[in-house]
């Protein structure tokens, strides 16, 4: 039977304990540091994610917009133009696509008026300017600037 015996010096036990405590804590600290580093890397990735999404959204939008323009250039009916699969895909992108629509309206003068009204539920075009491209673009660009989207 082993009996409990007191350490020779009271400090012996404590020193040992202190060493192991130190090792364990060092291990924990290292692990924590590693976890923190991993977390910061993950957070950094998450932080950069929106721009990645934006870039892909922009690329998708550009692709659909180009396809839509090429395939409906001869169509006059806004209803027929809106029925094109690419237009439908753009409508499905939701509010995130509004700044892209406004920018494209300015640069390429593509008719996104229906999509803009549908997504934003707004109509900044005055009745007297109905159908006039320059005036309609100006009205939407002004609206976009006021809304902080341009």
């Amino acid at each position: 039977m082993s009996t409990y015996c007191e350490p020779i010096r009271p400090t012996d036990w404590h020193e040992q304990e202190e060493d192991s405590w130190y090792e364990i804590n060092t291990f924990e600290i290292r692990t924590e540091i590693r976890l923190q580093q991993a977390l910061s890397v993950a957070l950094a990735e998450v932080a950069t994610e929106p721009s990645v999404v934006d870039a892909s959204l922009e690329a998708k939008f550009a692709e659909h917009a180009e396809k839509w323009q090429v395939e409906t250039a001869h169509i006059s009916s806004p209803t027929q133009k809106m029925m094109h699969p690419s237009y439908q895909a753009i409508l499905g992108m939701g509010k995130a696509v509004v700044p892209l629509l406004l920018r494209d309206l300015q640069r390429h003068r593509r008719s996104w008026f229906g999509a803009l009204s549908y997504i934003t539920k707004e109509n900044p075009i005055s009745r007297s300017d109905a159908g006039k491209m320059d005036k309609m673009i100006e009205a939407w660009v002004t609206w976009g600037r006021k809304a902080g989207l341009l």
């Binding site: 806004p78 009204s117 075009i125």
Partner: peptide, 14 residues
């Protein structure tokens, strides 16, 4: 300007 029947919700056309 562009002409097409409209319900005057967008004024996209005249």
């Amino acid at each position: 300007r562009k002409w097409w029947p409209t319900d005057n919700t967008t004024f996209e056309v005249y």
